[in-house]
Amino acid sequence: MTEPVLQTIGLTRRFGAMVASDDVSLDLRAGEIHAIIGPNGAGKSTLINQICGELRPDSGAVRIAGQDVTRLDTAARARLGLARTFQISALVMEDTVLQNAMLGALGAGGRPWRFWRPVLADPDLRARAEAALDRVGLLPQRGTRVSDLSHGQRRQLEVAVALTLEPRAFVMDEPMAGLGAEGSKALTGFLDGLREEAPILLVEHDMDAVFALADRISVLVYGRVIASGPVEDIRSNPDVRHAYLGTGS
């Protein structure tokens, strides 16, 4: 078996008496979408924060392509090829769509210490940023300020910035949040094609999207992975139906 692109080994994190992540071991392999589902408060955000480096685990490890990154910060993990999108858009609100995408391209190029030439005139960065915007369909809005974008467009821009990083793996925190049926469907189609480029660890509440996209699903309840496997296994797992889907029993 080949090395997983992203792997967590026994991640545990406590907040006081509450165990937010309890011995979580997951992996993400090339070419797949691995969805993480679970009721509110199951510890999904805590898990993502540990994977992306915003939170240190009490014990356990995170690996990117076999390299232990548990001690590295968010920026270092991003440079190793981890691209995150946020549940609540974390964009540069006063800047334009293009400037936000350029920031991603600048980070990916890793050369921000240039003080003279206008960044928007840098042909390489610009090509990279515009290609990403084009893929999510935001190129016509490149001159618009993010604060003037609709909610759906901001979600698209989140994905576009992640694309500019040309990452090894995507970690997406509820990319469908707040999108209408149309928007969800369009984004589902887009993510479907994206897995070939880089695998996606997908946290999502939209079950239609999860069942349509995921190759594997892990179910998180009270910080523990209670089930993990192919979509059909999860759909028919009685524990999962009881704990999460709310039917059966």
């Binding site: 910060d73 540069v92 990916a108 003080f115 206008p118 960044v119």
Partner: peptide, 28 residues
């Protein structure tokens, strides 16, 4: 004026408004 439009200016401006974003694209 040059600095504000330069790569450094873009990143610094973003660091003011959305430091988390700057981190997630791999900059400090």
């Amino acid at each position: 004026a040059r600095l504000a439009r330069s790569p450094f200016g873009l990143a610094l401006n973003a660091a003011r408004q959305a430091p988390v974003r700057v981190l997630t694209v791999g900059l400090d």
